[in-house]
Write a protein that binds this DNA or RNA. Structure first.
Lengths: 318, 318
DNA sequence: CCTATTATACTCATTTTGAGTATTACTGGC
DNA sequence: GCCAGTAATACTCAAAATGAGTATAATAGG
C-alpha cells in the first residue's frame, strides 16, 4: 500500500432531460475558459456516506433539481486532464454520473443552463438523415488522417474500425457507439480536446462545440450508455411528463437514440410491452385525429425483468 | 471545491478464468481475518497515467499473469466498508475491475490462488438444476425475513422483487441478476457481510463462502456484468485455449452463465455467427465421435458490431 | 461387428420483426 | 355541413430468428 498522494475526488453529473423533442444537458459556464462544463461537486468523505449520496447532495443544493434515475458511468483518472497541475502535487479523479430529470422541474438557480446535447456531438443526430457534417467534414478529414499515417500491420484493423464505428461501406449506423466514435475522432485529432496541449491553437474548424476538460468524453459515455439502456430499462419515462401520447414517447426515444423509428411498429412494441396504460384523456392538438394519452405503469417495474423500449431496426440480409 | 480529505484509491481486480468447466477467481488470503479477498493495488497518481494502467501494472508485478480484456466495473466509496477507520481520517475508494485471463497462464507467484466462483455465490449455479441451497435455505429464510417485516406500502413491491430476482412464482430465472440477488440477500441479513457490524457473530449458517470486506458484492457485480456481456461481445474466447471444440466452448459459456444450453442451437448460433473457424484438427478424446477443433476468428472484431455468444432461452407463452 | 457415446446435420412449428396498406377521427376552410 | 388535410390507430404479410426436436455420422471398446 504505497502512500497515497493528494487526491481529490470529484463527482461529475451528466444531467439529462428531453424537451421539445431534443435531448438536453445541464451545463455551467467555465469562467476561465468560457467553455461549457459539466457541473460537479466534491466528494466529501466525512459527510457523504456514499458516492451517489454525495452527488445527489450537491445537485440538490446547487440546482434544486429533482433527480430521477441516477447511475454511475465511469471513473476517469487520466493524467493530462487539464485539472491536473504540472507540479504533480494534486490529482483529480472524476466519477461520472448519469442523472435523468425533467426540464419542467423547478430548474437551476445558479449559472447552470440547458443546452442541446447534439451541439457537442452533431454527428450523432440522424433524425433528419445523415448529418451534413459527416459528409462535409468528418469523412474527408478522417480519410486524410488515415492516409497520412504510416502503413503498418494495424492499418487494416484501423480502417475496419473507422468503417464500423461510422457506418461506412454499407455497414449500418449503430447509434450506441457514441464513445467509440468520439474516441476515434479524438485519436485523429479532429476534436479540440485532442490538440489542446499541442501547438495548434484551434484555428481549424473543429467538430461540434468544445467543452471544458474531457467533459465531452464523459457526455459521449453517457449518451452511449443511455442509448443502450433505454432498450431494456424503462428510463425514457423518467424524461416524460405525467401523461403523454405514444407519438410523444416515440419522439423522446428518437431524440435520445438519434434515429427515426417506424411509427406503427413502435406503437406495437409499446402496446404489446404493456409498459403504459390509457389515462382516458386525449390530446387534441395533434393536427389530425386526437391521440390517446398514456401514463407509465409503475407496476411494470415489479412484474417484468427488462421492460425497455425496443428500437426497431432495419432489415438487413446477412 | 472543498478541501479533499485523505483519500486512498485502491484498484481491485476480479480476475477470472475458466478451467475444467468451472469459472475461477483469483483471490488472496487476508491475513487478519483469514478470509479470501480480492487482490488489489494502490493507485499511484505519480506513476500511473491512467487507472487501468495502474491496475495492469500491479497485476503484472505481483502475479505475472497475462491479462486479456480489462474493464472497469464500478467505483465503491461506501463508508462502513471495513477498511474505513472509525477515526474518519482516511477513506478508501475502490475502483473495481474485471479482468479476463487464462488459468493455463504463467500463474500467480504470491499467496494468490484460484478458487471456484460459485463457492461464494452457490445459488448462481443452475447447471445441475436448481441449487439445493435455494430450496433448503434461501427460500425459507427469505420468506421468514419477509413475513417478519412490518407491513407497509412497500410490502407488495418487495414481494415482487423477491419473486423476480429469484425466479419464483413461475417467473423465469434470469442469470444476469447476480447483483440484485446478492443485494436482496444482504438486505435480508442472510450473508455474513450484512451482520458483521451487528451483534450476531455469524454462528447461524451463512449462505456461500464469505469474503473480506465487501468483496463479494464486487464479484457479484463482475459476474452479472460478464454474464450480460458475453452475449454481445466475444469475451468467452479470452478464456479459452487457442483451439477448442464447440462443446468445450459451450461448457465455458455454461460455466459463466450458470445455465445449461441446447447443444444443437448453440452450435447453430456459433456457426452462423461466424465467430470461429475450423482449424482442421480434431479432438478425439470426446468419448464418441471426434470433435472438430475451432479457433476464434480475430477478424470478427473488425467486421461485426456485437459478435457475442447468444444464450438460447426457453420458450414461454406470454 | 455390435453398442454406447458424442458430434453434427437437418426439420419444423412459433414467435418476432420489418415494412406496408387500410381505416378512423379529428381540424380548418369554405 | 361537406371536403381536404393530417395524424392516430388497426391490420396484414413475408422474412428472419428461435426453441425444440429427430436423424445421421464417426469414433472407442468390447
Amino acid at each position: 500500500m504505497a502512500a497515497s498522494q493528494e487526491i481529490e475526488i470529484r463527482l461529475n453529473a451528466v444531467i439529462v432531460a428531453v424537451t421539445k423533442e431534443e435531448p438536453r444537458l445541464l451545463v455551467v459556464d467555465d469562467t476561465t475558459t468560457g467553455k461549457h462544463a459539466l457541473p460537479f461537486g466534491p466528494f466529501n468523505p466525512v459527510k457523504d456516506r456514499t458516492l451517489e449520496q454525495g452527488l445527489r447532495g450537491w445537485v440538490k443544493n446547487q440546482t434544486s433539481l429533482q433527480l430521477g434515475h441516477v447511475e454511475q458511468l465511469y471513473t476517469f483518472g487520466d493524467r493530462g486532464r487539464d485539472t491536473y497541475h504540472q507540479s504533480g502535487r494534486e490529482r483529480v479523479v472524476s466519477v461520472g454520473y448519469l442523472a435523468l430529470t425533467n426540464e419542467a422541474n423547478p430548474g437551476a438557480t445558479t449559472n447552470a443552463h440547458w443546452t442541446n446535447w447534439y451541439d457537442y456531438l452533431p454527428w450523432e443526430d440522424w433524425r433528419d438523415g445523415e448529418p451534413k457534417i459527416l459528409q462535409s467534414e468528418i469523412r474527408p478529414r478522417l480519410s486524410d488522417w488515415f492516409h497520412g499515417l504510416p502503413k503498418s500491420a494495424a492499418t487494416n484493423s484501423l480502417r475496419q474500425r473507422i468503417h464500423l464505428t461510422f457506418g461506412l461501406k454499407a455497414r449500418p449506423w449503430n447509434e450506441e457507439l457514441v464513445l467509440e466514435r468520439y474516441e476515434l475522432l479524438y485519436e485523429a485529432g479532429l476534436v479540440a480536446e485532442a490538440v489542446r496541449s499541442a501547438q495548434d491553437d484551434g484555428k481549424e474548424s473543429r467538430l461540434g462545440l468544445d467543452m471544458h476538460s474531457d467533459h465531452r468524453r464523459i457526455i459521449a459515455t453517457a449518451l452511449g450508455r443511455l442509448r443502450g439502456k433505454i432498450k431494456y430499462r424503462p428510463l425514457v419515462f423518467e424524461l416524460m411528463p405525467e401523461r403523454f401520447t405514444l407519438f410523444q414517447l416515440q419522439r423522446a426515444v428518437e431524440a435520445l437514440s438519434g434515429v427515426r423509428l417506424h411509427k406503427q411498429n413502435f406503437r406495437r412494441l409499446i402496446a404489446d410491452g404493456g409498459l403504459v396504460e390509457e389515462t382516458g384523456s386525449v390530446d387534441v392538438h395533434t393536427g389530425g385525429r386526437p391521440a390517446k394519452q398514456f401514463s407509465f405503469r409503475e407496476d411494470v417495474l415489479l412484474e417484468r425483468l427488462s421492460p425497455g423500449v425496443k428500437i426497431p431496426g432495419k432489415r438487413r440480409t446477412r
